[in-house]
Write a protein that binds this DNA or RNA. Sequence first.
DNA 1: AAGTGATACAACCGCTTCCTG
DNA 2: GCAGGAAGCGGTTGTATCACT
Length: 263
Amino acid sequence: MVRAPCCEKMGLKRGPWSLEEDQILISYIQKHGHGNWRALPKLAGLLRCGKSCRLRWINYLRPDIKRGNFTNEEEENIIKLHEMLGNRWSAIAAKLPGRTDNEIKNVWHTHLKKKLNKTSSELSNKRVISKQKIKRSDSNSSTITESESASACTTSSSDDFSSVGKRKDVIKSEDIESMEEPMPEIDESFWSEAAALDETSTHMTSSSLTISNEILPLQYPSNCGDIFPQESKVDYNSNLDDGMDFWYDIFIRTGDQIELPEF
DNA sequence: AAGTGATACAACCGCTTCCTG
DNA sequence: GCAGGAAGCGGTTGTATCACT
């Protein structure tokens, strides 16, 4: 496939948009719609490439864009959606009306990552304490490493979430859609239950991490049965780098029911 | 006041996906 | 089914601004 020459080579302008250019783009799109982005700059009389026009419109000039700081609620939603979707910024943006993928991506890299780091370090401190309690209560406990138990209780909140990015390569959105049992819709109750799980309902014994079966049935695609048998057991020996940790994180939150196999 | 590092965010790059002939 | 063009997307970069020394 032959790539189109970049803006500079075509003698087109790059860099920040002027007020005048914005006005031209807005008035053109208001009159004619954007139609073909590639043809638009020529038709509108802009010395920009179509890609640049599209980006400017989508990320900045669209009338339905919500400007200004993100509210706490929005930030929390982004964090939660990121746990579910990884770095699929456009998918996250689709759940946040008025916010663009670019804006969300920026806010993630500048604010939320740090915020989350702070939170996760606090959480891991808590877990170290609780693990010590568990060990004391049962000296014959099965070998559950700190990282394993941490990921069992919460989703990944590592420094750069690079592992999440990798996961999408293993299980793509179309794969999810094609699975026989659709993923449950996420609503507020999901998160509050997940929070409740994190706070109170996890009960760890020497051989299992069991969350009451009555809370919610474990839900996962049936074609994952070889890895997640219907008895809702999580194979702690499975290789978490093979992409299944993505499901692993979600299902623990969704299903609230995990039993560790005997080691 | 000047210099420097950190931060925020707009814009770009290049790859992937989708659509059409 | 294939090729080519357009749009979409995520990662990265550039730059303005702020905070601190």
